[in-house]
């Protein structure tokens, strides 16, 4: 464990907590993409299957349980409890266009052709594009509530911090996982324009408005 990975995990934890709290306290999931949340649930389930086969640490296991729990709680809130506030019209990204290519890519490019490894690889590829429906929705609505932008900033930062963790592990432990690194770069790059808007607008107290 290193400071980059720990702060990345905490940023990720903060993001999922912000999201659940935002929906629970405002009793509304306006502006949130349910499709991205479904993709995240698939990411966590396919990546954390080793919960039942490998015990790494209490920290590792508890974080995995929290991420899976929070993502299903969010989906429950969005598609059941507060489904009246779910914005179907603006959440129109076709997630099949993300699922099919990532499944195919995981079957073609992976470390080992075993069930766990291919599912883990699929999860890594899917996570790198899972935020697209959410970013697409923000671009369609043209704006985002500030709490939603804090959620996106924390979520986007987590994988950016993981990039620093991988650089550290490469030099300190001579260990690297190329599939995770390339996907992590793609994932973080997708947030770049959002990061720019967040830093230049939201941090100055303005609302996140996309140029029309």
């Amino acid at each position: 464990m290193n400071i980059f990975r720990l702060s990345g995990d905490l940023s990720h934890l903060l993001a999922v907590i912000i999201l659940v709290l935002k929906i629970w306290t405002t009793r509304s999931c306006a502006g949130i993409s349910g499709k991205s949340q479904i993709l995240f649930a698939i990411v966590y389930v396919t990546r954390y299957l080793d919960l039942v086969t490998t015990f790494v640490s209490v920290y590792n296991t508890s974080m995995k349980v929290i991420f899976i729990g929070a993502s299903f709680a969010t989906i429950y809130l969005m598609y059941s409890k507060f489904k009246a506030t779910y914005d179907h019209n603006h959440d129109s990204f076709r997630i099949e266009f993300l699922l099919a290519p990532t499944v195919i890519l995981a079957l073609l490019i992976n470390q080992k052709f075993t069930v766990l490894e291919v599912l883990w690889t699929f999860s890594i590829y899917l996570e790198s594009v899972a935020i697209l429906p959410q970013l697409f929705m923000v671009s369609k609505t043209g704006e985002a509530e500030s709490i939603t932008s804090h959620y996106l900033f924390a979520l986007g930062s987590y994988r950016g911090l993981y990039l620093l963790n991988w650089i550290y592990r490469y030099y300190a432990e001579d260990h690297y996982e190329l599939i995770a690194i390339v996907s992590g770069i793609v994932q973080t790059v997708l947030y770049c324009d959002f990061f720019y808007l967040y830093i230049t607008k939201v941090l100055k107290g303005k609302k996140l408005q996309l140029p029309a």
Partner: peptide, 10 residues
């Protein structure tokens, strides 16, 4: 099983 151990990241 060592390889699986390497997957110690979330």
């Amino acid at each position: 099983n060592f390889h699986r151990k390497e997957k110690d990241e979330l």
